[in-house]
Computed example of a mutant assay.
Amino acid sequence: MKNYWTISRKFEQNMNRLQKPKKETFKKRLQNYLIKFKTKSPQITEKYKYFLAGFIEGEGSFYVGLKKNSTSKYGLKVDPAFSVTQNKTGVVHLIAFMVLFQTGRIDFKSGSENTYVFKIENRQSLVEKVIPFYKSYVLPLTCSTKKQIFNNWVNVINKLDQGVHKTSEGLAYEILPLVFASRTKGKREKSLQDYQKLVLLGVRQ
């Protein structure tokens, strides 16, 4: 009987692996975009890199999302991301960002059928690809306000990599203030103090 259940369990595990959809490769995803937008993969020259740097300066965003998450230790998930927005007529430049960074996705911007967004959320890609590019091609020429926003965003990522978010105090008093400092002023659903209270009280809604 023991052998039967062992064989049955292994059979079920093998079937689950077979049924699990294969993860889309970057090469395949890029090819799908080229077909969808009926364009060719652009050549990334040094001159084009500076052109793309201009897009980041004008339409780029360094953002840290805060999401309530019942599976997270303190009920809050911190998600750094980088994005560039562009009208559909210039979507080829978003594809160029994909080619440049060898990662990312392109989707419709929420609430618009004429605007697309290129986005990278993988933290390793942000550290190894986006940050070095920005420091080399954009940071030396950008304004002081955008420099500060970028530096705060980078500090959030560094603290996440250091595990600061693994304590409630570290998340509430070191990371969250940097998150809000990296955001431009505008309408916000919750304040810094609201999120700090959520973390410190362990409230999960």
Results as ranks from 00 to 15, higher is better:
69 N>M: 08
63 Y>T: 14
45 T>S: 12
65 G>D: 12
50 Y>K: 13
51 F>Y: 15
27 K>S: 13
51 F>R: 08
56 I>W: 06
44 I>R: 02
57 E>A: 10
68 K>V: 15
30 L>A: 04
40 K>I: 01
44 I>F: 04
34 L>E: 01
40 K>Q: 06
53 A>C: 04
53 A>N: 05
40 K>R: 05
48 Y>K: 06
68 K>H: 12
40 K>T: 14
28 K>M: 10
42 P>T: 01
53 A>K: 08
65 G>L: 12
34 L>D: 02
36 K>T: 09
55 F>H: 15
59 E>K: 15
57 E>I: 09
36 K>S: 07
41 S>L: 00
53 A>V: 02
28 K>L: 09
37 F>T: 01
51 F>T: 11
41 S>E: 02
62 F>Y: 14
32 N>H: 10
37 F>W: 10
56 I>V: 12
65 G>F: 13
31 Q>N: 10
51 F>V: 09
40 K>P: 02
47 K>V: 06
49 K>G: 01
67 K>M: 14
65 G>W: 05
67 K>W: 09
44 I>D: 00
58 G>A: 07
43 Q>T: 14
36 K>C: 03
30 L>S: 04
57 E>G: 07
32 N>T: 13
41 S>K: 07
35 I>N: 09
38 K>T: 08
38 K>G: 02
51 F>P: 02
69 N>I: 00
49 K>I: 05
61 S>K: 15
69 N>T: 01
63 Y>L: 14
28 K>C: 08
65 G>K: 14
36 K>V: 06
36 K>D: 07
43 Q>E: 08
34 L>V: 07
36 K>F: 09
65 G>C: 10
46 E>M: 04
51 F>I: 07
